[in-house]
Amino acid sequence: MKRKFIEILGETFLRLSIIISLIFLFLFLFMIFSKGIKVISWEFLTRMPRSGMTKGGIYPAILGTFWITIVSIFIAFPIGIFSGIFLSEYGKPKWLVDIIKTSINTLSGTPSIVFGLFGLSVFVIGLNLKVSILSGGLTLAILILPTIINSTVEAINSVPFDFREAALSLGATKSQVIRNVVLPYAMPGILTGTIISVGRAAGETAPILFTAATFYSRRLPKSLMDEVMAMPYHIYALMTEGTSPQYQIPIAYGTAIVLLILILFINGSAIFLRYRIRKRRG
């Protein structure tokens, strides 16, 4: 009787937890959407801001976020994956590899504003890249690098030894084992880590605050050396520096909706990609 009671109590507790989580998620979406949905329109997505940012669209901010994210992924993805492969397959001695892994973990827990300061002093000032897409992309790349390295290392470590053994026994060299067996098997896991980072890069404000973002720009960026508007910073700026809150607050919420949908879209397409890879290998 007592065991049965504990059983029911336990299940009820678990059920309650998920209900609470769902309530928060629902409230979150409801608040954002109810406050921002009325500004969403085709014009909002495709036009420049007008009349002191009280009207018009957020097209430059969407474009800016897009480019900063793309730059950071193009830099962080290859470097992160190659670092991960090196750490898990070639790194020696073990104690040094462990120290490096711990440092990377620590780095991934560092507050993002610290990365912003780093980007400012190294890229913007040190390398004289100015406040630009490139500086912001580089800063975000460093921010997401630990996540990509970690997920690569974890995905590689989860490849069953059976597969390596089989490939080695057929006369494969170490690099052939990695290229033909380990990486294809680990790829879905690596992608998962990268997807999470793409979402993070697109949504971060602090790292681009001093390195890439500008409050208002009259023209669209023409090169990687231009400063840009970006969605997360746009929200921040409208909420803190806005002069006509009655118009600008809904625009901020509308921008949040667009940002959420963008991240949903990125994650969705990556999940689809991962599903395709898994399905192909049966």
Binding site: P160, D162, F163, A166, S169, L170, P184, Y185, R281
Partner: peptide
């Protein structure tokens, strides 16, 4: 050549 205890075809 070698064949292992557990069948281990590649994916």
């Amino acid at each position: 050549g070698m064949v292992f205890q557990k069948p281990n075809p590649f994916a």
